Amino acid sequence: MSTADTLSPDYQRIARAIQFLEANFRRQPSLDEVADAVSLSPFHFQRLFSEWAGISPKRFLQFLTADFLKERLARAGSLAEAAADAGLSAPSRLHDLFVTLEAVTPQEYRSGGAGLRVAYGTHPTPFGPALLAATERGICGLHLLDATRPDEAAALLELRKNWPRADFEPAAERTAPLAAQAFAPTAGQPLHLLVRGTNFQVKVWEALLRVPAGQVVSYQHVARAIGQPRALQAVGSAVGANPVAVLIPCHRVIRKECVLGEYRWGSATKKALIGWEMARAEREAVRQTVPD
């Protein structure tokens, strides 16, 4: 089943606009130019982008500049400091607030998911459709389907390779609430993840959970956080193998040169995720400073 026909035209325009803005940043394209690049009037483009991001396209682009990202990397001296910077008393509080992660046992890893029943469904998100898979023990896969990877069948095949002996069943009615919560977390209702990976991969994924929304870290930060500061290539491989998009936030890892780098679900989606989260974090910071 191809989901190409279900890709949100609005998000496709957002992604194209982000790519156009970044490619032409040095000459500061006008709103009219960007709108024309995505086949919209300036009025409709401004409204579309502001409704999606909560801020103007110009402000959004500032979040993706090298200078801004350099300041954010400097702020993240360690993952513990990044968590503290977000107002959390300890990294473990992030798990309490939003996501908990469970890794399968060594025996379960070897069994390839034998005995597990995996429900899956494709659902709309602010970043286009996503295939979400879950067991009774938690979400085991979340794949974003953008314009470069629109095939649900291919995403499902990747999930099956990670859980080769599990029983898969289409059950969108069961996975829809999880997909909704993944992009609009509810206080006091953390999402549970079940992952199948090597010990090293799981350590990296646990470290990523300590990176707050609106913050970025380098591969060096992650390597130091797991006690293996020289294992940069292995960290990069583990980040790229992340089976649960967004919830295990591998998109928040960038190169120390402040280059965003590649992303398993498309470079435009990585830019969109980072900017979208930074915009939400900025609005939340403003809200907290305004007295009731």
Rank of each mutant, 00 (worst) to 15 (best):
T3I: 02
T6A: 13
P9L: 06
P9Y: 11
D10Q: 15
A15Y: 02
E22W: 05
A23V: 01
R27A: 03
P29C: 09
S30N: 11
S30M: 05
A37Q: 03
L40Y: 04
L40V: 12
E51K: 15
R59N: 12
F60G: 01
F63L: 06
F68M: 03
L73F: 05
L79C: 08
E81H: 07
A82Y: 03
S89C: 06
A90W: 11
D96S: 10
V104K: 03
S111N: 07
G113A: 08
G115F: 05
G115A: 06
G121N: 07
T122V: 15
G138P: 05
L145H: 09
P150R: 01
L156N: 02
L156F: 07
E158D: 15
R160A: 09
R160I: 07
K161I: 10
N162T: 08
R165W: 02
A184S: 13
Q189L: 13
H192Y: 11
V195S: 14
R196F: 12
R196I: 09
R196Q: 12
K203E: 15
E206R: 15
E206M: 09
G214Q: 02
Q215F: 14
Q215I: 04
Y219M: 08
H221T: 13
A223T: 08
Q228T: 05
Q228S: 12
R230P: 00
Q233Y: 12
A238I: 05
N242I: 08
V246A: 09
H251N: 06
W265L: 01
T269P: 00
E277C: 01
A281I: 01
V286M: 11
R287E: 09
Q288P: 05
